[in-house]
Design a protein around this nucleic acid. Structure first.
Lengths: 105, 105
DNA sequence: CAGGATCCCGGTCGATACTG
DNA sequence: CAGTATCGACCGGGATCCTG
């Protein structure tokens, strides 16, 4: 259900409110230089999978230029504490990648 | 660090005490009929990775026939609650595989 | 008993180009 | 802006056989 390289990070990034496709994409940058970002195809697939799993919800505003927002469903929100636990663990076990701009914890 | 198909289950199974190679293997059976168990190569690799990550500890008794025990390190033990959180989540989100013989929770 | 060696399949993910 | 289409590399993992 949460398999995939970005699913956890996506859900985590959505915990503070809805984000648009491009915003999610920006949040997943691997390098500060912009190289090696997530391929649109990949982001699209992960979002689709998360939607089908019922963790997130897709809202298409049906306008041009396109505007689509993704937000957590209740189910998705119920999963956030689990991710928090994972993050807590990883932070204490070394290895944390700490790609967190929200200065939580 | 916990990537891999069996790592979480291995750590989880070790939470109640040390287990020998064969015991871990038995605990990972996928079918009750014994078909499709984990390949020894795979178990070996996951155990090696977990050892290098410092989550488990390998104790070789150096006897014949071979006897090797694996146990959690403090670091590994500190990770158990995280797995518990994951299990809690999955149980509440559907999808739980519930391969649990310890009747916990 | 606890692994190592070998072969190979399939899924995941990356890069690039294109579009309503 | 929010995706799709296409091609291909990587590698996790399965099956089987072998060994100190």
């Amino acid at each position: 259900m949460i398999a995939g390289k970005y699913k956890l990070r996506i859900v985590w990034d959505l915990k503070d409110g809805p984000l648009r496709y491009g915003q999610i994409r920006s949040g997943l940058l691997r390098g500060a230089d912009g190289t090696g970002e997530i391929a649109p195809r990949e982001l699209s697939r992960e979002l689709k999978a998360l939607t089908q799993s019922g963790l997130i919800d897709r809202k298409d505003y049906g306008v041009v230029p396109p505007k689509v927002e993704y937000r957590l469903t209740p189910k998705g929100r119920s999963f956030v504490p689990v991710i928090a636990a994972i993050r807590w663990g990883t932070r204490h076990l070394g290895r944390a990648r700490a790609v967190d701009r929200s200065a939580a914890s």
